[in-house]
Design a protein around this nucleic acid. Structure first.
Lengths: 218, 218
DNA sequence: CGTTTTTGTTCTACTTTAGTTCTTTTTTGC
DNA sequence: GCAAAAAAGAACTAAAGTAGAACAAAAACG
């Protein structure tokens, strides 16, 4: 349908008009698709207009409109994206470190937007993740220790038995195993020194599921 | 679609109309977008009317109406995409994954050169590191569980109390806490079901010190 | 009401930015 | 290695933006 260059240009035009609200100029386009002369852009745009992907208001500058987008990506683009994905596999990703969460007595999970935690991309593929620093020993029984960093996948539902970040009464967050019992929810610590909390389901919100754990010794 | 100036003016008109309840005058607009003459504003407005972003009630002053605004992506999405790009630049380091090590009965640390484990660079800064997969439960007491991956810093000496990879009789490697007692060395599991091994120092070689731990839950 | 002030429109002249067309060069695929 | 396609580059045309002034129309005001 489209050549890779045409596809790439069309996507760039679509993206920038949506992001900035105004159409890019030919020079901006040539930089974006990696050409050194805008005559090439002209040819690509003519082709896209002819195929009815773009419309241009005649005798106007910066006046292109995306008519439609192709359903299929050119195979060259698909291959390129696969390569990018592979590159990501060897890259690191920063996820927000939202602060400390009690594995003992519950405290608020403080949302400090500035702190970041770096993890391998594979750990956080497909989904939104954040990190929390464990404070307390209530989950010691399953090897989650004071000072560990846990990586949480955002979710608002969980299976019975999952370790979840649970928000109680909209003000205190805690890491516990969850178990549903009819209209009630059990928050189960993994340390005999702590007691299971039994709460009406309405007071408990799941904010994420434990996905990984990282501990540094020295 | 729009030129940058047109976009800026449209946004200004939209904003002030909503905030003050009445449309700004041409002079206010020229100050807002940084022009010194309002004739330019006139031209911009004509262009916006022509593109159907504005409507003006004829023979009225301060009588512009915003018909529509260009569709923008939510800024959150824009920011997220930018972050993804930046993530590509973040480097990860691959360290050898030497195979499974018993945290229970000792087995050989199999040196499989091909397997790699990716970790954030910060975790393995300054020193040589390798990864091992934990098999067994002998270190459960300090939160090192079956299936965990531990990151070991190469070293041939250790402090009392360190968790080390110890090679016994040059053939079996195991992860244990180490303690020196005169001519002997104690290898201490952290699970009451296992017994402390007491060996002459000559039979035990330290091959590394536990540095970090990574656990994946799902 | 008519006068003053504010506001909008038009015109000219000019600069900058953007789009088009053409020729030459490079790349690509048989 | 040759023909076709793609890209680069220069030269040109067109549109957008800038500025100032003159003027017309609408709003404000006593």
């Amino acid at each position: 349908m489209l050549t890779p260059k045409q596809y790439k240009l069309l996507m760039f035009i679509n993206k920038t008009t949506k992001e900035t609200g105004c159409c890019p100029s030919f020079d901006e386009m040539k930089d974006a698709v990696g050409l050194k002369s805008k005559s090439g852009i002209y040819a690509l745009i003519e082709a896209l207009v002819e195929r009815n992907f773009l419309r241009k208001l005649p005798h106007k500058a910066r006046a292109l409109e995306v008519v439609r987008l192709p359903k299929l990506k050119p195979s060259a683009i698909v291959a390129e994206e696969k390569k990018k994905e592979e590159a990501l596999l060897n890259a690191m990703v920063e996820i927000p470190l939202y602060g400390k969460i009690a594995a003992g007595t519950p405290i608020e999970a403080i949302a400090d937007e500035n702190e970041k935690f770096s993890v391998p991309y594979e750990m956080v593929r497909g989904g939104q993740y954040y990190a929390l620093k464990i404070e307390g020993d209530s989950m010691e029984g399953i090897g989650i220790l004071n000072g560990d960093t846990v990586i949480i996948k955002k979710a608002d539902t969980a299976q019975n038995g999952d370790i979840v970040v649970a928000l109680v009464d909209n003000c205190e967050a805690t890491l516990k195993q969850i178990k549903k019992e009819g209209p009630e929810v059990l928050l189960i610590p993994k340390n005999d020194a702590y007691e299971v909390r039994r709460l009406p389901a309405s007071r408990v919100k799941v904010q994420g599921i434990l996905s990984s754990l990282v501990r540094n010794y020295h």
